[in-house]
Design a protein around this nucleic acid. Structure first.
Length: 383
DNA sequence: ATGTGC
């Protein structure tokens, strides 16, 4: 069994189930190294917040949301002029298909048509979000300036992925190959990797269109400063050997600065990865990491917090989320403390903090049409 | 995570 490395201080909460998953995954055939990052938590069979180096390609390790990641945009909006309530009122209809010229836009992005075209520009559910943020504190002004960031302008952080496309890519390979590792040069691996790469590109474009839609709705201009995948597999040169690096909820430490978001009720961190992060498989935490399982938060919180209470955060931010279950599931209490998670990375010498970012307005989801009061789904199969 | 299910 290869070395299993856990990057976390004793104060960081790591669930036993997550550690079991990390060890079990590390014991798979062809596995060369496994790393749990401080946001490690249990997933469906495989842990989230982890990186794996292997001789084989394991589609199941990447999971269904291939290409999920974070994009950061610098807007032209002066922070002190922003009116969250007014902005919130303008952010509607982002769950449905974009009303622009989607086909023209898709071609311009170099994206092939898929069955999921109409999902382009949609955030999705779970932990996905679009968040307007203010710069809280700058700790490394040179790197901050080199990124062409301005402390007095609002930022837009997008967390989303490949929606139904990635799910269909994973399902297709699992249906024929199961969860086994694929020989990199085999036909199934080649077919998967081709679709995987397409899903990466699709997810990147999706985040771009999500940003465009929000910015248009708010009449803002912005420029993209970074876009970083945290669910992917890629070939790497490892001490002269060609191996496959799987990241499942693990941000790359070899693609420049990244944002490690906290929850909507805490600061997020803009960090500069160090220059030699091989010990963590060239990876960093991708967020705070869940502390409570999905579906657990409502029972724990509903006695002390009403849904309305959850729409204002401890830092004064506003939350747009009309799905009650999701409102609880994504409550700040459901997450580990991002301060501790980032401190673990810094203490391990893996990155340094460039700046902290404060959530101002977090967009999760408006009520889907079929859940709106008085709206019923049309019956099917009758005329 | 997911056109999530009848």
């Amino acid at each position: 069994m290869p070395a299993v490395c856990l990057i976390a201080s004793p104060e960081t909460w790591i669930e036993g189930e997550a550690l079991r998953q990390l060890e079990q995954t590390a014991a798979l055939p062809g596995m060369r190294a496994a790393v749990g990052l401080p946001d490690l938590h249990p997933g469906k069979g495989y842990p989230i917040g982890a990186a794996f180096l292997a001789e084989l390609v394991y589609p199941a390790l990447v999971g269904n949301d291939i290409g999920c990641g974070m994009a950061l945009w610098q807007t032209d909006q002066p922070t002190h002029k922003f009116k969250p309530e007014r902005a919130a009122a303008r952010l509607t209809g982002l769950e449905g298909p974009w009303d622009g010229d989607l086909e023209h836009w898709r071609r311009a992005q170099g994206l092939a048509s898929t069955a999921f075209d109409s999902a382009l520009g949609t955030i999705g559910g779970g932990n996905h979000f679009a968040e307007v943020q203010a710069v809280e504190e700058i700790l490394d002004s040179d790197t901050f300036a080199a990124l062409e960031l301005d402390k007095d302008r609002l930022l837009l952080l997008i967390h989303s992925g490949s929606r139904g496309l990635g799910e269909s890519v994973l399902r297709a390979v699992i249906d024929t190959q199961g969860h086994r590792g694929l020989e990199p040069d085999s036909a199934p691996a080649r077919a998967y990797l081709k679709q995987h790469d397409q899903a990466l590109h699709w997810a990147d474009a999706n985040r771009r269109l999500i940003a465009t839609r929000l910015l248009d709705a708010l009449s803002l201009e912005a420029e993209r400063r970074l876009d970083v995948w945290h669910n992917l597999v890629q070939p790497v040169d490892w001490a002269g050997e060609r191996l496959w690096l799987h990241r499942k909820g693990a941000a790359p430490a070899d693609r420049g600065p990244i944002v490690i978001p906290g929850s909507r009720g805490t600061l997020s961190y803009l960090v500069q990865p160090g220059t030699n992060n091989d010990v963590s498989l060239r990876s960093l935490a991708h967020g705070a990491g869940r502390k409570w399982k999905r579906g657990e938060a409502r029972g724990r919180l509903s006695a002390r917090q009403r849904p309305e209470d959850l729409k204002k955060t401890a830092l004064g931010g506003q939350v747009i989320c009309e799905d009650k279950e999701l409102l609880y599931d994504e409550a700040p209490e459901a997450y580990k403390g991002v301060d501790r998670v980032v401190a673990d990375l810094v203490d391990a010498g893996l990155c340094r903090i460039i700046a902290t970012l404060r959530p101002v307005l977090t967009y999760k989801v408006r009520l889907p049409a079929h859940k709106q009061p008085g709206v019923r789904k049309p019956k099917r199969g009758r005329r």
